[in-house]
Design a protein around this nucleic acid. Structure first.
Length: 639
RNA sequence: GGCGAUGUAGCUCAGAUGGUUAGAGCAUGCGGCUCAUAUCCGCAGUGUCCGGGGUUCAAUUCCCUGCAUCGCCA
């Protein structure tokens, strides 16, 4: 009996709407989970939302909602995203679920009873944005490095969890279990962090400051710190302590997280489990960030690509394929519509789609769409190593998948696809079809090709479930059978002759780059605008030096997609690189009066030192420059 | 400030206990085929392997140093 397999995504914090990063974590978990179905394992897939804490309260206030109504709304968005991404989760947990709350209290009480939690006074500089205390040294100019606001001095008594006590144990555990944190770079990061003394973790927040949380079972004046609450979802979801699911699936668990939450998962969580006397999770899989146009995908920057927009435009499977194929699990990757289109065309349309189409077209043309009866001797003779190449591809696929090297798994599949295309070329079925005497050979060749496609249809299943099912249907396979099981894929020659194949289809249409408008905003009404940024003081605003400037020169930067090199006059001359060439030609803007940020720290863009910023608004492919409504002296400040 | 990672073809990346012609995919050019979604197959390239110094018969690979980028920590 194969071992049970439990996989989790992080539970997503509902202070912002879902973005590409969330989609990636969730799809990666889905791929890993489906792969384990291929191995015939019993799987449990958990995802959900994290809904307590200070930031939620403020986000709710921003939208004039109660915390309850707000979390219901955003959690709903995350949940609704799942079916659209074909996520086969088994359970969607919310940290506001009564069952979860009960487990959190249970564990807190347990740890408290064992004497691992103590009460102590703490005074420090607290940033409400980060929901954490800062040391003086961490501040930049006396301000929070993230939010650029001055932290407030807060003195309060709180409960602390004796994390430091477990430091040596954790170091040993990580050293003894090389796979515990993966990939290695993050394991080293945690070890390096642990080489310094660990501080005890403050696990409470007084209700005077925050009410939206889980009350401490041993002191009703406090709520639980969000991380302590959130991490426990991984066991509360499977019914800790007595649930059948918990007994079956814990601790055979793979957690998937992005690198920003490495510390809570790599340090707090194992120590919490250890302190509560629960076996520690098996493995933490850490992935990188998606960068969009060089800058980090970040909620606060607002440059969020809505995953749904892209997927609606090119199809879900193409989207899933792209993000799994392009990102090396663990490393950062950059997302662009252009590279996605390139992948769609070369890998999906040309290689796979066209192979599928040409083989099925021949099956129809030469055998009226019936799987040919084949002479076993000839079939063997004409394999030309195809079968063993299929086995090799499956082996590579398996070992890559085991290590979460999704991109390598896909490379292995595509090597085989390329092998199939060469096979068609070498055997030249259209030549065999010309002579009656080579009819038998033709049967064998087409049969082998159909077999190869069957293998591919299975290997593609975890990443592209819809395409896989579509291929299955067109290969005349029984829709009720789990055709993607590795055991079956490894057996060559299981297709039955005489089965009628449905008419062929185009799996992936080519995207015509000329006709296709990149970054199209035609659905801008659907587009979700970024949330308003946190409020700033007049003093902060005044730091920005806005000036009226006249554009005196503009030129296209060779090889840059969207950039113009612009020279503006505001008493002195300033060179600015601006990403507006999709909306403006150089000639359009020369002479225009524009608004520039004149004191922006210079940055090198495409080798040109840009010393300011042009204000412009972007709505999809519409770009509008910030200008003034009457002529005014260049250099004038805007206030 | 401390620690660490990275820097290889136009792009994305592989790689070698130091040793003859440094690789793949995409993009580019040429040729072939016609079953196929103008797809597929073959061939062809191009690289001071970040700069400087050292060890060595020999370094892009090891060591030191500088620069750049990134991450973690303070």
């Amino acid at each position: 009996m194969p071992k049970p397999y439990y996989i989790t995504t992080p539970i997503y914090y509902v202070n912002a709407r879902p973005h590409l990063g969330h989609a990636y974590s969730t799809i990666a978990a889905d791929v890993a989970c489906r792969y384990n179905l291929m191995r015939d394992r019993e799987t449990f897939f958990l995802t959900g939302t994290d809904e307590h804490g200070d930031k939620i309260v403020r986000a709710a206030k921003n939208e004039n909602l109660s915390p309850r109504a707000y979390v219901d709304k955003i959690s709903g968005l995350f949940k609704d995203l799942c079916p659209e991404l074909r996520i086969r989760y088994n359970y969607f947990i919310r940290t506001t679920d009564p069952a979860h709350i009960a487990v959190v209290k249970n564990i807190l009480q347990k740890i408290y009873d064992s004497g691992e939690i103590y009460f102590s006074e703490y005074k420090g500089l607290y940033c409400f944005g980060c929901e954490r205390f800062y040391t003086e040294r961490e501040l930049v100019d006396g301000k929070c490095p993230d939010h650029k606001t001055e932290p407030e001095v807060i003195k309060e008594s709180n409960y602390f969890f004796k994390m430091s006590k477990y430091q040596d144990w954790l170091i040993d555990h990580i050293n003894n279990n090389p796979d515990f944190i993966y990939p290695e770079r993050y394991r080293n990061e945690v070890l390096s962090f642990l080489s310094e003394p660990l501080e005890d973790l403050c696990i409470s927040r007084p209700k005077t400051r925050l009410e939206w949380g889980i009350s401490l079972p041993f002191d009703d004046n406090y709520v639980t710190y969000v991380w302590f609450d959130a991490l426990i979802n991984y066991i509360s979801a499977v019914g800790y302590p007595d649930g059948e699911l918990f007994k079956k699936f814990w601790p055979h668990v793979n957690h998937i997280v992005a690198k920003d939450i490495l510390k809570p998962h790599g340090i707090y969580w194992p120590i919490m489990l250890k302190a509560a006397g629960i076996p520690v999770y098996k493995r933490l899989n850490v992935h990188g960030y998606w960068n969009v146009d060089q800058s980090k995908m970040s909620k606060s920057l607002g440059n969020v690509i809505e995953p749904l927009q892209i997927k609606n435009k090119y199809g879900l499977d193409a989207f899933r394929f792209f993000i799994m194929r392009d990102m090396v699990f663990g490393l950062d990757s950059s997302f662009s519509e252009e590279s996605m289109v390139q992948r769609i065309n070369s890998d999906l349309a040309n290689d796979l789609g066209n192979l599928f189409s040409r083989v099925l077209a021949m099956a129809h043309k030469y055998f009226s769409g019936e799987i040919p009866e084949v002479d076993p001797v000839l079939e063997q003779e004409l394999q030309l190593g195809l079968e063993s190449d299929a086995i090799k591809a499956i082996d590579k696929f398996e070992s890559a998948m085991e290590k979460f090297e999704f991109h390598k798994a896909l490379i292995a599949v595509w090597e085989f696809i390329s092998r199939m295309n060469k096979y068609v070329d070498v055997t030249a079925p259209w030549e065999l079809a010309k002579k009656k005497s080579s009819r038998k050979q033709l049967e064998a060749v087409i049969y082998n090709l159909l077999e190869g496609l069957r293998v591919i249809s299975g290997l593609v299943y975890p990443v592209m479930p819809d395409t896989s099912a579509n291929m299955q249907k067109h290969l005349g396979m029984n829709p009720d059978e789990s055709y993607y099981r590795l055991e079956i894929l490894k057996k060559w020659g299981t297709m039955k002759s005489g089965i009628k194949l449905p008419k062929s289809v185009t799996l992936f249409p080519r995207v015509d780059l000329k006709k296709n408008e990149l970054y199209s905003g035609e659905n801008s009404s659907e587009k979700i605008l970024p949330d308003l940024k946190p409020e700033i003081s007049m003093e902060e605003f005044n730091k920005v030096d806005l000036r009226i400037a006249t554009v005196v020169h503009a030129e296209v930067i060779p090889r840059a997609k969207k950039l113009l090199k612009i020279e503006v006059d505001l008493e002195k001359k300033l060179t600015i690189v601006a990403g507006i060439s999709e909306g403006y030609n150089p000639d359009d803007i020369i002479g225009k009066q524009v608004i520039v940020v004149a004191n922006l720290k210079p940055a090198k863009i495409m080798g040109i030192l840009s010393k300011g910023m042009l204000l412009a608004g972007f709505d999809g492919n519409i770009c509008a420059l910030g200008t003034v409504d009457k002529k005014i002296k260049p250099g004038t400040s805007l206030t």
